[in-house]
Simulated scan of single mutants.
Amino acid sequence: MHESLPISVFIIARDEADRIARAIDSVSDFADEVIVVDSGSRDDTIAVAESRGATVFRNDWAGYGPQKRFAEDACRNDWLFNLDADEAATPELVAEIRKLFAAGPPGTASFWQVRIKDVFAHESGPAPWAYGYNQIRLYDRRVGRFSESPVHDTVRPPAGARLGQLSAPMAHRSIRSIAFHVEKMNRYSTMQADDMASRGRRLARHRLLTEFPLAFLKAYLVRRYALYGWWGLVISTNFAYTRFLRLAKTYERELAARARSDSGAA
């Protein structure tokens, strides 16, 4: 067992009993503490998290940004590492973080980005071509914190802040099954439509025609899902449908608002 680093790891969760142990175990080698904020799990998420040594807080769901800010406030250290319940720090990433903090908290940057790579249910780890995206996951909360947006859970560094890049990846197992993915698509697209409405964004009608094929090509070619063979066809189609649903729900709201307006004017 290695000596812990002055880093608090925090995870927001709900109904993640089957995945949260992997997440907690992946950081237990370096974390000074692991904080889990549960928003009303109906399974054994809390029991599993506590059995792995995490401290669990309960907080009603108010959106991604507010929930992560609550978790930030629950941490005792200023250096934080954010981990989702469906993610796991790879051994290479843990080793890199240990090296970064070998002489104490790094002074080169207050925000460190991590490459988060897809891992599907039938895989043991990220494929060499796995799609990944960069997010700030290791940071000093005295300098910047998560956005308060209920939809966009992103750390907001101040203007001119220095960003570092960790080279080792994080494993992201976001899709338990196709059935789970369909439910997630429906939930996320509704939140995205709500966000667009709250910001007064209007839909360009032509996007109802172009969104699906363009999103499919983005997933299949740009994200290199084609390299997964037939599975790549499945996940590309699901990705495109998620993008289309967001617009379809936005258009549905516009039609309903117009009908209310016409009814009131009659």
Rank of each mutant, 00 (worst) to 15 (best):
H2S: 13
S8N: 14
I12T: 15
A23K: 04
D29F: 02
I35C: 00
V36W: 07
D38T: 05
V56T: 05
V56S: 00
G63A: 00
Y64C: 14
G65I: 00
P66A: 02
Q67A: 14
L80P: 12
L80E: 09
L80I: 11
D86P: 04
A88Q: 03
L93M: 08
I97L: 02
I97Y: 01
R98M: 06
L100F: 03
A102N: 09
A103T: 15
G104M: 04
P106D: 14
V114L: 06
V119A: 05
G125H: 09
P126Q: 00
A127M: 11
A127D: 14
A130M: 02
A130D: 06
Y131A: 09
Y131S: 11
G132M: 03
L138V: 01
D140P: 00
V143N: 00
R145K: 00
S149Q: 05
V151K: 06
T154F: 04
A161N: 03
R162G: 10
A168P: 08
M170H: 00
S174D: 10
R176K: 12
S177P: 08
F180D: 15
H181S: 13
H181P: 01
H181R: 15
V182S: 10
V182Y: 04
S189A: 13
S189I: 00
D195L: 02
A197G: 03
R199H: 11
R201I: 15
A204I: 10
A204E: 15
F216M: 07
L217D: 12
K218M: 07
Y220H: 12
Y220P: 01
V222Q: 13
R223L: 00
R223H: 10
R224D: 10
R224W: 02
Y228N: 03
G232Y: 06
L233D: 04
I235C: 04
S236H: 01
S236A: 11
N238Y: 02
N238D: 12
F244D: 11
R246L: 13
K249T: 12
Y251M: 15
A257W: 06
R258Y: 00
A259D: 11
S261D: 12
D262I: 11
A266N: 06
